[in-house]
Nucleic acid binder design. Structure first.
Lengths: 211, 211, 211, 211
DNA sequence: TATGAATGAGTATTCATTCAT
DNA sequence: AATGAATGAATACTCATTCAT
């Protein structure tokens, strides 16, 4: 118990650092985020940052891994429960957009690093990306089996397209309208509907849609 | 004449610097591209870089402005000549993807900076972005008038989605298959077709498509 | 008894720290030996190092003082028992070389710190050095009285020369041949004989030697 | 010529840095010498240090290499000119001691690094050391041929012993008496004579010496 | 006695930019 | 136009030491 309390406090420090880092990185990007600013924002000394993480890159990677990890967990849950690929895809896209709406900082960091040349992140990070894309791809393939996704579509291509599109449009929207706090506003929900509608039309065979 | 030759030589140096800068930036991103590496790659001295450009950011912005400027010019030409919005959009998307295929370095730089928080570039750069998006938007509106784009689509939303999707999928494809030299290969053309098909389905009303 | 057992355990921890510190210092020198590495090597926590020692320098000094202290004790015993200066000197040199052979880490640390500019060690350490040199010097003076050391030799000079020579040659030998475990090998004994022979010739007047 | 002047100025800066670095290192050793102190001492900015050298270690290595290089050149000249091994050895030892007398800073740095565990210096440095020892060794072998060095001596062993002895005794002497400026004082010459006498007795066969 | 989280001053190194030539 | 030496502020990272538990 004594032990536990200590561990908890150390974990709290770790969390503060991650939160502060995300905030600072979101402001000006990874490269311009300084460790000094991060620890100042977190209200801890510089030393602890290096006690808990091995480097600035390690901090950033932890943020990305954690964020994508959560997303992957949600996607997996959706994949397991959704009665149809169509519903799974819609929910996934909604989830993804929601996450970005609620944490634009993470979205910005993610989009900036996802296609960044010469990325600093390890193979671990790439593995996470692949898993995220694979979950989308899986539902697209399932949709083709179920007849709700056009057979001529390339699932691998489209999973990337979906991620790129959701990220870019949502961030663009936030840039113009401001970030969301708490639950999505009506306008935001409308916007998400626009994405799912777009995807729906792109995917579904005319015959089915007409029906 | 003396004057002209000199100017020409100066222009050549400027060109060398821009090309070298793009190559270096493409490798590891803007932040990790050093002026030292750029002048080394260009084979000129450090001082001359600051004779031709006011700062490192100025070099980078010149690259972006030039690249997007060319794209805008092409788009404008397409917009003026295309007999229908539908054809204009397809051509624009093809053009865009081609540019990236032939110059992945530029594509990577563009995608990294387009949604980057706290961007270093001036309003000039934002103006270019807006013009690029406006040209796509214009054709989407035209398409709605012509009945080949679903009226419920938001042209502003979709122009952003198009740019994001084309950039991300093309770069992803290049990452897996390697960059193109010279004209597009058959596989690359097939890939571009996949994008236009996706867009087509997302845009066109069922009735029209069915027809 | 409770007391004693505790003391014993505390002493064990102290011993572990000293041994670990010597090992770490021997690897890369005092400056590059970190307290973190030392406690890791010792298998104890960081705090405990500062419970037993007041500083990193204190740990290092303890090692040196202990090592030289042992050497001094041996030298004193030799000085008391040896029937002649000549035998005393030979035994001292043999002892010194043996100690280094069996603990190259200590030898390296000693030689590095002995002539180091701006040494971190206190006057205590200097006192030990002086005592060690004085014991050698004492036997040289005795040898002069006994007629086995040339009168024109400066005992102060030579005591330093002996220490320097034994340290450097032995470490050089170890560097080439590897450290000794347990008793000295035949080759090592041969090497030590080489040192004593050298010293013998340098010291002894021709008349005596010839005799 | 314009060119030459520039080069000269750059070289002067380089020299200033090396001199300053030696002074600072001599004070407290390599590990405690900071680049800040060095550039302050040299009266230049921090940046130039890294323009001329790749790292702090590079600066230090340059000092060592230069110093030993000079010594090697002198030794080679002596080896070529000396009529006998005996004279060559005496001159070499005198030269070596003189260099240290006139530049104790270098001597201290040299002795500290020569047997330092986990040395930072490259193979280049080791090569220099070997060449220095080889030149001494060469004269010892020659002396054995000429009959002025006892055949039972191991030249490899003794070359190391000589270097160690000269370095340690000279530095010890300087520590007690202070460094020399300009030519050697009478006392210092006397001290050097003491070394050569010691070496002489250690080397020469009794028969010869008696003769 | 022992733990390990936290501190913060210190350090090497980088790099955009300037400037004398 | 061009060179390359020089500047100095900024930055990631280290590490001896402290301290609450």
């Amino acid at each position: 118990m004594q032990q536990k309390r200590k561990t908890t406090k150390a974990d709290a420090t770790r969390r503060q650092l991650l939160d502060a880092a995300l905030a600072v990185i979101a402001e000006r990007g990874y490269a311009e985020a300084t460790v000094d600013r991060i620890v100042e924002e977190a209200g801890v000394s510089k030393g602890v940052a290096y006690y808990h993480f091995s480097s600035k890159a390690d901090i950033a990677e932890s943020i990305l891994v954690e964020g994508i990890g959560d997303l992957i967990a949600s996607f997996e849950s959706v994949a397991a429960k959704a009665p149809s690929a169509r519903e799974a895809l819609v929910t996934m896209v909604e989830l993804f957009a929601s996450v970005i709406f609620k944490n634009a900082a993470f979205g910005r960091f993610f989009v900036a690093e996802l296609w960044r040349p010469g990325r600093a992140w390890s193979e671990v990070m790439r593995g996470y990306e692949r898993r995220l894309l694979a979950l989308l791809e899986g539902q697209l393939v399932r949709g083709q089996r179920e007849g709700t996704v056009r057979p001529e579509l390339d699932p691998s291509f489209e999973s990337v397209a979906l991620v790129g599109m959701v990220l870019t449009t949502t961030l663009y929207y936030i840039g113009e309208e401001g970030e969301s706090l708490g639950t999505l506003t009506e306008r935001e929900s409308l916007f998400v509907a626009r994405i799912t509608d777009f995807v729906h039309h792109a995917n579904v065979p005319s015959a089915v849609r007409a029906g």
